[in-house]
């Protein structure tokens, strides 16, 4: 949660805009996958700009702008500034927008090498050396985490803004959701590395419910203790390399994950 200023009350039939930056479109699809709630949503707000859903574009200003994706090209770095100017209330949705996403793995590598290896005519590619979250470029009022975002949290966000209350999006650990559901802990019962104790709640413990460890698509929780969790994974037989890879996924560039994965990379190289 980034917002420090008061939550503005959005008037009824407020104008919603949805923007895409570097991303897979999965978070926008989560909006379209709201099913019966999608009809409620279009009743509640005017969808003024949402290219994935409709061709019509209404001009700015917009009351709420949902931004999917990270900033990875010079053009995007320009465009996000305009988007910020056009939206009264800007929400970064999903792992890419809130942390840089899986494409932020380039931040550890040489982008020139990638471009040369992938494109036959690399001279036409205009890209930045890094993929960074929206908040690294403009002020973001609120963030929804996840790869993709969670339906219930999307609805909660819009519902809360419509009546002018703070969205109820907890920043505590995934374990709280897992235990409320009464799921068997995969770490304690199987010795399986699970990032849950360091990851923000919000998905409803999807992966532990399928008997597999959390891989952290919601990113770090408030004050995660990744040192201790990493030590535990080592005790359970994981290698520094495995721990590094677990942390360098969808939210690799979130500061706590970045620091911890760098730490395990150093130890891996010392070996």
């Amino acid at each position: 949660m980034l917002a420090k200023r008061p939550i503005p009350k959005v008037p009824p039939k407020s104008r919603l805009a949805v923007f895409k930056f570097s991303s897979c479109d999965g978070c926008q699809l989560s909006l379209l996958n709201l099913e019966e709630h999608l009809l409620e949503l279009v009743d509640a707000v005017e969808v003024a700009y949402f290219l994935e859903a409709r061709r019509r574009e209404l001009p700015p200003p917009y009351d709420v702008g949902l931004v999917e994706g990270s900033i990875s090209t010079p053009h995007e770095a320009q465009r996000i500034r305009q988007v910020r100017r056009d939206c009264r209330y800007l929400v970064a949705i999903g792992a890419c927008a809130s942390s840089g996403g899986i494409q932020a793995l380039r931040n550890w590598a040489d982008i020139g090498e990638f471009v040369g290896a992938v494109y036959p005519n690399p001279q036409y590619i205009r890209t930045l050396d890094t993929a960074t979250p929206i908040a690294a470029h403009v002020f973001v009022d609120f963030e929804l985490r996840g790869c993709p975002v969670n339906h219930a949290q999307l609805l909660e966000l819009v519902s809360a803004l419509l009546v002018g209350r703070r969205p109820n999006v907890p920043t505590s650990s995934l374990c709280l959701e897992c235990k409320r559901r009464g799921l068997p802990c995969v770490l304690v019962t199987h010795g399986q590395p699970c990032l849950g104790p360091a990851v923000q709640a919000g998905c409803g413990a999807l992966c532990p419910a399928c008997n597999r460890g959390c891989y952290g698509c919601f990113g770090p929780m408030e004050q995660p203790n990744l040192n201790s969790l990493g030590d535990r994974f080592l005790e359970l037989g994981a290698s520094h390399r495995q721990i590094k890879h677990l942390l360098r996924m969808f939210n690799a560039y979130q500061e706590p994950f970045k620091q911890a994965s760098d730490h395990h990379e150093r130890l891996e190289q010392q070996k």
Partner: peptide
């Protein structure tokens, strides 16, 4: 506190 994850599992169970 260096070991505690502050995950809340102890309080849930």
């Amino acid at each position: 506190a260096a070991r505690c994850l502050s995950c809340g599992n102890c309080t849930m169970v």
